[in-house]
Amino acid sequence: VTTYKLVINGKTLKGETTTKAVDAETAEKAFKQYANDNGVDAVWTYDDATKTFTVTEMV
């Protein structure tokens, strides 16, 4: 189990959160659900070296 981080650069929601998951795909599903629940529709990137997902909402 690995800890993954999500950085949110949204128009109305900004911040960071983490989740523990067995792999990046599982973490991504959890983070996308979190973003969807909070109304963030954005572009996703992932950095495997830092285990960090970044979501940037387009203006």
Rank of each mutant, 00 (worst) to 15 (best):
D48E: 13
K11Q: 10
Q33M: 10
E16N: 07
V22Q: 09
D37C: 14
V7I: 14
T54W: 11
V1P: 07
T54C: 06
D41V: 11
V7F: 05
G15Q: 13
Y34K: 03
A24H: 09
K20P: 04
E28A: 12
T52D: 00
T17F: 15
N9R: 09
T45V: 09
G10N: 06
T56D: 07
K20N: 11
K29T: 06
D23F: 03
K11R: 12
K51V: 02
N36F: 14
A49M: 09
A30E: 12
W44K: 00
A30P: 01
A49P: 05
D37R: 09
K51M: 05
V59E: 13
V43I: 13
V1D: 09
T50F: 03
T56L: 06
T12F: 13
A27Q: 00
T17E: 04
T19K: 04
V1K: 12
T17N: 04
G39I: 14
T50D: 03
N38Q: 13
D41Y: 11
V40K: 06
D47T: 03
V55E: 01
A21T: 03
Q33Y: 04
E25M: 10
K51A: 03
A21K: 01
M58S: 10
D37N: 09
T17K: 12
D48L: 04
A35F: 15
Y34P: 00
A49K: 09
V59G: 13
A27L: 02
E25W: 09
T45K: 06
V59I: 12
D41N: 12
T50V: 04
G15M: 15
V7N: 03
D48H: 07
A24G: 03
V59C: 12
T52H: 00
N36Q: 14
D41I: 10
Y34D: 01
A21Y: 05
T17Y: 15
T54F: 12
K32Q: 07
F53L: 02
N36V: 13
A24F: 14
K5E: 02
A30Q: 11
V7E: 03
N9H: 11
T52F: 01
G15Y: 15
K51P: 00
Y4G: 03
T54P: 00
G15N: 08
D47A: 02
Q33I: 11
A24C: 14
L13S: 08
T17R: 12
T2H: 14
K32P: 01
G39R: 05
A27H: 00
T3H: 05
I8N: 01
V22P: 13
T52R: 01
G10R: 07
T2R: 08
T18W: 13
M58E: 11
F53C: 00
E16H: 09
K5A: 03
T18L: 09
T50P: 00
A21M: 02
W44V: 02
T50Q: 04
D48F: 05
T26H: 10
E28W: 14
T45A: 07
D47L: 02
T18S: 09
T3Q: 08
T26F: 04
K51S: 03
E28D: 03
Q33P: 01
V40G: 05
D48G: 06
T50S: 08
M58F: 11
T45I: 07
T52L: 02
N38A: 13
N38Y: 14
K29R: 12
A35H: 07
Y4R: 02
N36R: 14
V7H: 04
E28F: 15
Q33D: 06
V55A: 15
D41F: 12
W44R: 00
V22C: 10
K11A: 11
G15T: 14
E25A: 13
A42L: 13
A49Y: 09
E16S: 11
V40S: 05
F53T: 00
G10M: 15
V1T: 11
A42P: 07
A49F: 10
V43T: 10
A35T: 13
V40H: 06
A27R: 01
L6G: 01
F31E: 01
D37K: 11
A21G: 02
K14Q: 10
Y4I: 03
E25L: 10
V59P: 13
V55G: 04
K32H: 07
T45R: 06
N9E: 07
M58I: 13
D48I: 05
Y4E: 02
E16T: 13
D37I: 15
T3R: 04
E28H: 11
A42V: 08
V1Y: 14
T3N: 05
K32A: 04
Q33A: 12
T2K: 11
K14L: 09
M58R: 12
W44D: 00
G39H: 07
G15R: 13
K14E: 06
T19Y: 13
D48M: 06
Q33R: 10
E25D: 08
L13K: 09
L13V: 11
D47N: 07
T12E: 08
K20I: 13
T17P: 03
T56H: 08
D23L: 03
E28T: 03
T56E: 07
N38H: 14
K51H: 09
T52N: 01
T50L: 05
T50M: 04
T54K: 03
K11M: 11
E16Y: 13
T12C: 15
A30G: 03
M58K: 13
T45H: 11
T45M: 07
V55Q: 03
T54I: 06
A24E: 04
V1A: 08
V1R: 08
Y4F: 10
N9Y: 13
G39D: 07
Q33T: 08
I8R: 01
T19D: 02
W44N: 00
G15V: 15
E25I: 11
E25H: 09
T3C: 13
K14T: 09
K29D: 04
T54R: 04
A35E: 02
V1L: 15
T17C: 15
N9M: 13
F31A: 01
W44T: 01
V22A: 11
V7Y: 05
G10I: 15
L13M: 12
K5L: 07
T50C: 02
T12H: 13
Y34G: 02
G15H: 14
F31W: 02
Y4C: 04
Y34R: 03
K29Q: 08
L13D: 06
K51L: 06
T12L: 11
Y4M: 01
F53S: 00
A30M: 12
V55R: 03
D23N: 11
E16M: 13
G39V: 12
D47C: 07
T45Y: 08
A27K: 00
E28L: 15
Y4V: 03
A27Y: 01
K14D: 05
D48A: 11
T19A: 07
A42C: 12
T45Q: 09
T52I: 03
K29P: 01
V22L: 10
G15I: 15
T50G: 02
V59F: 11
A24N: 04
V43H: 10
A35R: 06
T54Q: 04
V40C: 10
D48V: 06
A21Q: 04
E16W: 13
T45C: 07
T2D: 10
L6I: 03
D41C: 11
L6Q: 01
T2Y: 14
K32N: 03
V55M: 12
Y34N: 03
K32V: 05
V1G: 09
T17M: 15
N38G: 06
K11V: 12
T2N: 12
A21I: 02
T26P: 01
E16F: 14
V1I: 12
D47M: 02
N36H: 14
V22F: 09
V40Y: 11
W44C: 01
T12V: 10
T56N: 08
T50H: 04
E25F: 10
K5C: 07
V59H: 10
T45W: 07
N9G: 04
Y46W: 01
F31D: 01
T2M: 08
T2W: 10
V40Q: 06
T56I: 10
Y34Q: 04
E57N: 06
A49V: 11
D47I: 03
K20A: 09
T3L: 12
I8D: 01
T50N: 07
T45S: 12
E16A: 08
Y4W: 03
Y34A: 04
D41G: 07
D23I: 02
Y34M: 09
F53I: 03
V43M: 09
G15L: 15
V7M: 04
V40R: 06
G10E: 04
T56A: 05
A21C: 06
I8C: 13
K51D: 01
A35M: 15
N36L: 15
E25R: 11
T12A: 08
K14S: 10
T18V: 08
V1E: 13
V22N: 07
K11E: 08
